[in-house]
Computed example of a mutant assay.
Amino acid sequence: MSSPAQRVRPRFKKKNPNHGSFRLRNKTSRAKDGTIRSAMRIGDADPRSVTLPGIGALRVREDTRPLRQLLATGRGRVLFAPPSPATRGAGGCP
């Protein structure tokens, strides 16, 4: 007779390695003085952070300085942000 350890059935793993993720749209609103306010803020809490509506500040892997410079000059726009679970530690944005 075989021992209980030998009778353990194999655990089937999911073939798709991707974990659950979703996209947040960057909604903008106009202030009374005519300026456009973005719901997503880049580098507010830390140079390597993104603040998303409803979630809060998240850390990112790369420095956001080039993105902040493009946004400041009007040459760049943030349309979507796909937050996903990080492989190590806390969650973040790619």
Rank of each mutant, 00 (worst) to 15 (best):
S49G: 06
R23I: 03
T64Q: 15
S2H: 12
M40R: 00
V8M: 13
R48L: 06
R30T: 15
F12Y: 11
F22S: 06
V78T: 01
Q69L: 12
P66N: 11
L52F: 01
S2Y: 14
R65Q: 11
P17I: 00
K27A: 11
P53F: 06
A86Y: 01
P4W: 10
F22Q: 05
G54T: 08
L58V: 08
R41N: 07
V8G: 10
S2P: 13
T35Y: 04
L67D: 03
G43Y: 08
N16V: 13
S38I: 04
F22V: 07
R59E: 12
P66M: 04
L24F: 01
P85C: 06
F12T: 08
I55C: 10
G74L: 02
P17W: 02
V78M: 00
V50L: 13
R77Q: 14
P47D: 04
A45W: 02
M40H: 01
L67K: 02
P17T: 02
V8A: 14
K27M: 09
C93P: 00
G89F: 06
M1L: 12
S38D: 15
F22T: 06
G91T: 00
R61D: 15
G92C: 01
P94L: 01
D46M: 02
R23L: 05
P94F: 03
V8Q: 12
K15Q: 07
Q69P: 02
V78F: 01
A5G: 10
K27D: 10
G74V: 00
P53Y: 03
T73Q: 03
K27L: 10
T73W: 00
D46L: 04
P66L: 03
A90S: 10
S2R: 14
G89V: 04
R7M: 13
S29R: 08
G74A: 04
F80C: 03
A90E: 13
R7P: 05
P94W: 00
G76V: 05
L24Y: 01
R61G: 15
A81G: 01
I55A: 08
P94E: 00
L79N: 03
A45M: 09
D44R: 09
L24G: 02
M40Q: 03
D46P: 01
K15T: 09
H19L: 11
G92I: 01
R25Q: 06
G91N: 04
D44W: 11
S2A: 08
K13Q: 12
G56S: 09
R88H: 08
